[in-house]
């Protein structure tokens, strides 16, 4: 059955096994790298497509705003800028809440979608399924509404029993709007 151990065969077997395993994994990594990247790209493309009106192509850019770096996709149709899809992360109840916020060129929210969250299942996690909560972001004009939850004297309906998550979501949208406002200002001064 099992061989007797001496230093030579122990070292030999361990080295061989490790070498073989890392070789297998290296190969597997090389083979799966493409599909993994493709899956990630598809996920973001889907998110951008969901939060912006029709566009021809996007460019991935980043900007310094509100004291940190924001990444965003600038969507163009023909020569015109359709809007921006901003990746906005705030801290929710259970951890980070990452959103993709689509904002059209005139500064109105087109739609939002959750990229990743670690909110409580059945409570805060509803931020990505609750229809009423999600619908209120569509076409939201920041000049008409106060971007705070009703508990904080704002205009946003929070998810029942998940005020902290709703606050984080609202803040993420507000941050994204501020980023786009800054972008628009910059563009105007460049003209």
């Amino acid at each position: 059955m099992a061989k007797e151990s001496n230093l030579k065969n122990m070292a030999l077997v361990l080295t061989l096994v490790c070498l073989f395993c890392s070789a297998v994994l290296g190969g597997a990594y090389a083979l799966t790298k493409k599909p993994i990247d493709a899956a990630a790209a598809e996920k973001t493309a889907k998110a951008v497509g969901a939060v912006l009106p029709e566009f021809d192509e996007t460019s991935y850019e980043s900007v310094e705003a509100l004291g940190k770096t924001y990444n965003y996709y600038k969507a163009v149709k023909g020569d015109e800028t359709v809007g921006y899809a901003v990746e906005s992360t705030t801290s929710g109840f259970g951890g980070n809440l990452s959103l993709m916020v689509g904002i059209t060129a005139d500064g109105v929210v087109y739609n939002t979608t959750v990229l990743s969250h670690s909110e409580t299942p059945g409570l805060g996690a509803k931020c990505s399924t609750d229809e009423h909560f999600m619908a209120q972001w569509k076409g939201l004009n920041p000049s008409e509404k106060i971007l705070k939850v009703k508990q904080d004297n704002g205009d946003i309906d929070a998810i029942t029993a998940s005020t902290i998550t709703s606050r984080a979501y609202t803040l993420a949208v507000a941050n994204a709007l501020a980023v786009v406002a800054a972008l628009n200002k910059e563009e105007k001064s460049n003209e």
Partner: peptide, 21 residues
Amino acid sequence: AIAPAVPDKVHIPVYIVVIAT
């Protein structure tokens, strides 16, 4: 498949490496 060739004293580390792979 590899068990008969593995020396007794290092069998746990070898198994762990295989599983981790």
